[in-house]
Write a protein that binds this DNA or RNA. Structure first.
Length: 564
RNA sequence: GUGCCUGUAGCUCAGCUGGAUAGAGCAACGGACUUCUAAUCCGUUGGCCGGGGGUUCGAAUCCCUCCGGGCACGCCA
């Protein structure tokens, strides 16, 4: 739980703050109040390890040119007993800090000590947060949108856990309402078509046309024959839904499991009706005066809470809308179950729902900021440079199972997290299975396997990873060694930013960078066969690299193979 | 029409709570294995950051406007 970069930045901040105070005391700067000094990592290596733009920020208050201010601050700095080696003023007024390598050696000590916990932080402070994702319609198989949402949601949950949150992964089963009606109608039609003379039974225009519906009906017919041939339609549909729905849900669960996703809670929409929570919620809104009746329907005054238009809660046929149950669902999340924070992952086509739900939160007296919606753009699959819509084999839309079969879990999860959620994502099926440097998953996994292999070979010669106390780390001075250590130092901050922005894509980029630094190091520096003290120092560095790659891949639930 | 997302190298994308000379991967081209995994590395080429205005010491980043792409605007979910 030690963040060396943070410590270094704080040390620099203190040096700068003290210098400003001393300059003020000596009269060279006017007394200024400095709130927060921003320490950043310059893009150019020549600009030092860290820099601050404080001099430029003070221009208005101090009324000197920034370069002058920077020089004054620099002159008053005391860098005795710090990581800072030297300081330079540069450019329009930046103050650049060049550090001794000692801080990097401390990074290795921390990694070696913390092992699988290195990188973890505690900005979450145990706060209860729910991540609700996939929540696919249980009337059919999982599609590419679910696949992206699944990878994203699960990795967001993983990142939040690493950042110290108490995370619950939840799947909302839409087992009530209109689509279940349609599901029933579709099953009924397919079932009746199975019966002798049923060839002419019409299939509902807006029904589910998929093969899976036919298979369910055929299977039911094989098991129970014409048992439902002569019963009222309502009873027939109910029986078929009760037969097929659990099978679908089980298939979804299994597919997600092989995708590396395990939900803590499977929450049934129907249960909100059964428990009376939907009705309670509607009554609550009624009593508060947030509803009105029009044309036989009950409307929610969403416009009173910032939405663009009002919404129907109960249709004129007496059936509550999806919105009604969704409001009840979120009341359940916050009020009944006490989550401090709820994150929902929705496909971008649902973005219109965000304002509605936020307005509903306000009506319920819940801070709408506690509900965060991550919208992700949809996926286009490519094969041979062309867009793929249908599975060649089955002619159906490509399902998650198809994808896993073709590219495997690691590539799927990694690829879906390479782009920011708001970006459109082109998934290149050929690239995902290619075993070469073009494929980022292999690139990272290969680095890990390569390291494991090095450690294994040295182990066979009786050389094990040394303790930092037995190593002269100051021998690590090559540019490739320095770059690699700097990269390893960034992990805690990368996790913090990923957690704050809910963007695991940041971590896939980071771990690719780590792999890249490692490969460069590997080509420039030998470990085995070097003079013993140097070999030990490098072996420790290599082992720390292994730890970092493993820790990141663990958060992403991507395998870190020891051999490839 | 209104609202949201988006436009950066040939391709796919970072950078967007303003900072120094705009980055990465892939593609293209040229190099590196008798040595710990060449599924690797090193180098070169490649840019009116969609256009135009504004804000300021400074804009890919913030504001306005226009253009192009996607999505949403149901008593569907």
């Amino acid at each position: 739980m030690t963040n060396v970069v943070d410590n270094v930045k704080n040390e620099i901040k203190k040096v700068v703050t003290d210098a400003i105070e001393k300059a003020a005391a000596s009269g060279q700067l006017p007394p200024v109040r400095v709130n927060d000094i921003i320490i950043e990592k310059p893009r150019e290596k020549e600009h030092g390890d860290f820099s601050t733009n404080i001099a430029m920020q003070l221009v208005r208050e101090v009324r000197k040119n920034p370069r002058q201010i920077a020089e004054i601050i620099k002159e008053h700095m005391d860098i005795e007993n710090t990581y800072i080696d030297r300081v330079e003023c540069a450019g329009p007024g930046f103050i650049n800090f060049y550090l001794t390598n000692r801080w990097l050696y401390d990074v290795l000590k921390v990694i070696h000590a913390e092992k699988q916990d290195y990188g973890k932080i505690n900005i979450g402070r145990g706060q209860k947060v729910m991540v609700e994702f996939v929540s696919a319609n249980p009337t059919g198989p999982l599609h590419m949108g679910n696949a992206r949402g699944g990878a994203l949601g699960d990795c967001i949950a993983g990142v939040l856990e690493a950042a110290g949150y108490d995370v619950t992964r939840e799947f909302y089963i839409n087992d009530a309402g209109n689509q279940i009606e349609k599901f029933g109608e579709s099953l009924e039609a397919r079932y009746l078509q199975q019966l002798p003379g049923g060839e002419n039974v019409e299939f509902p225009e807006d029904g589910y046309h998929g093969e899976d519906i036919i298979e369910h009906a055929a299977q039911y017919y094989r098991e129970y024959g014409d048992k439902l041939g002569d019963v009222p339609s309502e009873q027939r549909r109910k029986a078929l839904v009760e037969y097929a729905l659990p099978k679908n849900i089980e298939k979804i669960r299994t597919a997600l499991e092989s995708y590396g996703i395990t939900f803590d809670v499977w929450f049934s929409e129907q249960s909100l009706y059964d428990s009376g929570e939907v009705q309670d919620t509607i009554n609550y809104l009624k009593e508060k005066g947030y509803t009105y009746e029009k044309e036989g329907a009950l409307w929610f005054k969403a416009t009173d809470f910032g939405a663009e238009k009002d919404e129907v809660l109960i249709r004129n046929n007496g059936v509550p809308t999806y919105l009604a149950s969704d409001i009840a669902y979120h009341r359940n999340k916050f009020v009944k179950r006490g989550f401090d924070r709820v994150i929902n992952l929705w496909g971008a086509d649902h973005h219109g729902h965000v304002a509605r739900m936020k307005s509903a939160m306000k009506a319920l007296g819940i801070d709408p900021d506690k509900l965060e919606v991550v919208l992700f753009q949809l996926v286009r699959l490519y094969r041979n440079g062309e867009i793929v819509r249908m599975s060649k084999r089955t002619g159906k839309a490509i399902s998650l199972e198809d994808l896993l079969e073709e590219v495997g879990r690691d590539a799927a999860r990694f690829f879906f997290n390479m782009k920011a959620s708001g970006s459109h994502l082109d998934f290149d099926l050929d690239l995902a299975v290619r075993q070469s440097n073009e494929n980022p998953v292999y690139y990272v996994q290969y680095a890990h396997a390569r390291i494991c292999s090095m450690i294994r070979l040295l182990g066979e010669e009786g050389i094990s990873v040394p303790d930092p106390e037995d190593v002269d780390l100051s021998l690590l001075v090559q540019p490739e060694e320095i770059d690699l250590m700097k990269k390893l130092a960034e992990l805690p901050e990368e996790i913090a930013i990923s957690a704050q922005t809910l963007e695991p894509s940041r971590l896939t980029r980071y771990v690719t960078d780590v792999a890249s630094c490692f490969h460069s190091f590997y080509n420039a520096c030998r470990v085995k066969g070097e003079e013993e003290r140097l070999m030990k120092a490098r072996l420790l560095l290599v082992d720390c690299t292994r730890t970092v790659i493993k820790n990141v891949l663990d958060i992403l639930s991507v395998n870190a193979p020891e051999r490839m």
